[in-house]
């Protein structure tokens, strides 16, 4: 027998997900389609506007808004995201080929962001002098724009002391040198951009965590553990960290889309391929299907990030609170 309560919860979840997807798809379509301009718009003295009109017909842009909206929703249901006017190939292919370097970059940045923030919070919590020192270290990362940090890192760590490559996601001939070399080359190219992207967010997570952790270290729970003879390291790494993780994990819902958005800046500064640059180019070219699909995908990232944060929060504290 299926538990009716569980079935009802499952149906509610599926219904909610479908409604969210429909709302995202609708907002993405209309936000993009109602903006001025279309991909056939030209300002070329040697091309008469009638030629642009012929292209509009060729691409179906002369269809009514409702027809285009229907085709967009229908395409989404069948997994067809449409066809990019600029790249002249399926949108899914463009997104697919550009998503991999962005996912590598943002994945690394996310891992680095949490690793740095939590390590520093663990080291600093409970000590006023260490907290002040780490605060002073993190404040500039929080305040200075990523673009500027990127240029600085590029100038110093890729040009002045060429520890990292300054361009792209792989070396020119890396693919010819075997898969392990190619993988190492890809990581080497991603390391500096990921550090720049991740460190800005690390400052925020550090601030969220360190105060919470300091309070946890002073809590009666920690005092009792010490009285029971539990070691300081265990109290810090297990009890205090678990307590302090709540707000940091809840931020994950915001961090994932923020990192994907921030990736555009990093991709431009480090001349890396990626989703951000593809969507930016689509914006300039008014490549409506690619732009709409990019907006839809970004919306899905937000939803996925929030869902992941909720799930992790529940795992950390099944009571439903924030630990």
């Amino acid at each position: 027998m299926v538990d009716p309560a569980r079935l009802s919860r499952g149906l509610r979840l599926v219904g909610g997900a479908l409604t969210t997807a429909w709302a995202l798809a609708t907002v993405a379509f209309f936000a993009v389609r109602l903006a001025p301009g279309d991909p056939t718009q030209m300002l070329d003295a040697s091309i008469p506007p009638s030629q642009a009109a012929a292209q509009s017909r060729l691409y179906g842009l002369d269809r009514s808004l409702s027809e285009q909206y229907g085709a967009w929703l229908g395409g989404l249901v069948t997994g067809d995201l449409g066809w990019s006017y600029d790249y002249r190939r399926p949108v899914s292919e463009v997104l697919g080929r550009t998503a991999a370097p962005t996912l590598l970059l943002t994945g690394l940045a996310l891992a680095l962001q949490y690793a740095v923030a939590l390590t520093l919070a663990l080291a600093a919590a409970g000590s006023r002098s260490r907290t002040r020192f780490v605060d002073a270290l993190m404040a500039p990362l929080h305040a200075v724009p990523t673009f500027w940090i990127g240029l600085l890192a590029l100038s110093v760590l890729a040009r002045r002391w060429p520890l990292f490559p300054e361009h792209g996601a792989r070396s020119l001939d890396a693919a010819l040198q075997g898969s392990w070399v190619a993988a190492a080359d890809a990581l080497w190219h991603a390391a500096l951009p990921a550090a720049v992207l991740g460190l800005g967010g690390a400052a925020t997570i550090y601030r969220l965590t360190v105060t919470r952790m300091a309070a946890a270290l002073r809590s009666p729970h920690a005092l009792a553990a010490r009285a029971r003879g539990v070691g300081e390291a265990r109290i810090r790494w297990v009890h205090a960290l678990r307590t302090a993780l709540g707000p940091a994990v809840q931020r994950l819902g915001l961090d994932v889309p923020a990192l994907v958005g921030g990736a555009l800046t990093i991709e431009v500064v480090f001349s890396r391929p990626g989703l951000g640059r593809a969507v930016h180019r689509a914006f300039l070219a008014r490549d409506i299907p690619l732009l709409a699909a990019g907006a839809f995908a970004a919306g899905l990232f937000v939803v996925a990030g929030s869902a992941l944060a909720d799930w992790l929060t529940n795992r950390l504290d099944p009571r439903g609170g924030s630990a």
């Binding site: 080929r97 550009t98 792209g168 996601a169 792989r170 020119l172 001349s271 890396r272 391929p273 990626g274 640059r277 593809a278």
Partner: peptide, 8 residues
């Protein structure tokens, strides 16, 4: 042709 990177 490495998309968004280089064309040789």
């Amino acid at each position: 042709w490495e998309p968004q990177q280089h064309v040789v």
